[in-house]
Write a protein that binds this DNA or RNA. Structure first.
Lengths: 174, 174
DNA sequence: TATTGTTATACTCTATAACTATA
DNA sequence: TATAGTTATAGAGTATAACAATA
């Protein structure tokens, strides 16, 4: 098995991961289109399903988004009829967030798309290879401090967004 | 080896790849900071090294960026003294691009950073595991039509950028 | 006075379109 | 008329800061 000169960016593991990561994010977004959702919406539905009834601010922290963005995001999902704001009677400053019935139904569709996405991507791998790959990726993620699960407290990486990469951080286009 | 329910986004290969891809792109950007470069600059230096003397437009196509952005990018690199525009005497409309001496020196430093980045990421893997991972990733990339090498003609994916993902397209923040 | 959520504003990145100079 | 490169302009997206209501 060759180890193509890692200084030749295109061959390294880092390059491949960035290339695949950006590509797959885009593809997932496309798979979501028929649902009329953006990726950010899907992410919030999933997170909300596990945290129904938390305050807007609490959910924002889980997602790692700042308050301004959270307002915007929640507005969008409320307009779509998928999420509902309810004033907390005990503290009328805060808004608790709930999935609506439509939101729950949509979540099921999101999960279906997710399943199909995962299957499509790994279609060419045997079950053993898939497990092997997943295990290796989990190790890398752990090494990088990307918490075993997903976004435990969400690394509050504010500041400017990553922007597409290049080189070994390279992206199809930038 | 478990196969954590792929509908539980955090466990799937797709999720891990997106998570790692975005993370590693950001980390690579940070590793580039001491050089005073952004990732886009590094990418252009690398591409230019293999295509010295091509017209601005030709390089733009290789990189998959539109002409406007190419002007901006080239301006930046020229201000940094790393790249030089030279009018083509045969067709005075076009600008050929060349790495300067400083550009070549900087490229060497970029390659060093790339090497260190790759090493740091895979530090915890044995050589066999590293090769195994690289091989699996290459297969996925090929399956996804992400050309064996890097950006052969560069998929001209114009349009809005991917934007950070969520779910199995999930990203640390957003 | 502190906190939740909101609005106002500014800044970055990028794309589309108009323009210039050559051909 | 067509093409290479440039400049002008406008639109996303997201951050910072000021604000209103409630505690």
């Amino acid at each position: 098995m060759e180890t193509p000169d890692p200084a030749q960016p295109a061959g390294g593991v880092a390059f491949l991961l960035v290339q695949l990561g950006f590509h797959l994010a885009r593809v997932f977004g496309e798979r979501l289109e028929p649902l009329g959702l953006e990726q950010r919406h899907a992410g919030m539905l999933v997170r909300l399903a596990q945290n129904d009834g938390r305050s807007q601010q609490a959910v924002a922290e889980l997602l790692g988004v700042n308050p301004t963005r959270m307002v915007f995001l929640t507005d969008e999902l409320e307009k779509l009829g998928l999420v509902e704001r309810r004033r907390n009677p005990a503290d009328r400053r805060s808004h608790a967030l709930y999935l609506t019935e439509a939101g729950t139904a949509m979540l099921a569709r999101v999960r279906e798309v997710t399943r199909a996405h995962e299957a499509a991507i790994t279609a060419d791998l045997s079950a053993a290879e898939r497990d092997q790959l997943a295990a290796l990726l989990r190790r890398l993620a752990r090494d990088q401090g990307l918490a075993g699960r997903a976004l435990p407290g969400a690394p509050p990486r504010y500041g400017p967004r990553p922007v597409a990469a290049d080189t070994a951080g390279d992206t199809p286009a930038d």
